[in-house]
């Protein structure tokens, strides 16, 4: 694929994805995964997760940083710019409009009903994404156990996800260091 077309696709994909992710944060990641891993086939399942992990340890908005990484991977610095611009335009535009019409949005029953239905669809899409990622990537028993333990830790004890990722990073570095001779 020629790089101009890739940049256009990065931009339009990110515009569409980021226009529909209410709540931000980790909700947008399964949407990006569906687009770039399943629909376009630009990344492997594990690469997507590596980008998420790296973007989490980068300052700023995680979703923008993932977009930047995918853009960089596919089309260098200009690809990053295309993806980041696409990711940022919808929220900025919508925020400008909405802060003007704030009361209308919170009280309009039609808007509220549409938003409520969309939330269920997104929850469903995340559930399917998580199952598909777990099937292809959680091969070992350790990985399965870790995953379940971390979900419980965050949900029940409000452990912050950044600390979990930092702890895992440290464990990974320690293991890589201890086993370096055996490779």
């Amino acid at each position: 694929m020629e790089s101009g077309k890739i940049r256009r696709m990065l931009f339009t994909s990110m515009v569409r994805i980021s226009a529909f992710t209410l709540g931000g944060g980790f909700v947008i990641i399964p949407l990006m995964r569906k687009r770039f891993v399943e629909e376009l086939g630009w990344l492997e399942e594990n690469e997507m997760l590596d980008y998420v992990a790296m973007a989490q340890s980068t300052p700023g908005a995680t979703s923008v940083n993932i977009a930047v990484m995918i853009g960089h991977r596919m089309a260098g610095a200009t690809g990053s710019l295309a993806a980041a611009t696409g990711a940022v335009i919808p929220p900025v535009a919508i925020m400008c409009l909405v802060s003007a019409a704030y009361d209308l949005m919170t009280e309009n029953p039609i808007i509220q009903a549409v938003l409520a239905s969309m939330r269920s669809v997104i929850a469903a899409m995340i559930a399917v994404s998580v199952i598909s990622m777990a099937r292809s990537l959680l091969a070992s028993r350790r990985a399965k156990g870790m995953c379940i333990a971390i979900v419980c830790g965050i949900a029940l004890f409000f452990v912050s996800s950044s600390w979990v990722l930092i702890a895992c990073l440290v464990c990974g570095i320690v293991e890589a260091f201890l086993r370096r001779d055996r490779q």
């Binding site: 980790f26 989490q56 995340i126 777990a134 959680l138 971390i150 990722l165 990974g172 293991e175």
Partner: peptide, 21 residues
């Protein structure tokens, strides 16, 4: 090796995001 520690954690964090929504 390092990434193999991080991937389950990332899946867990995404799953938690899904639970919240």
């Amino acid at each position: 090796k390092i990434m193999s520690w991080l991937r389950p954690a990332v899946i867990a964090v995404i799953a938690y995001g899904g639970l919240t929504i």
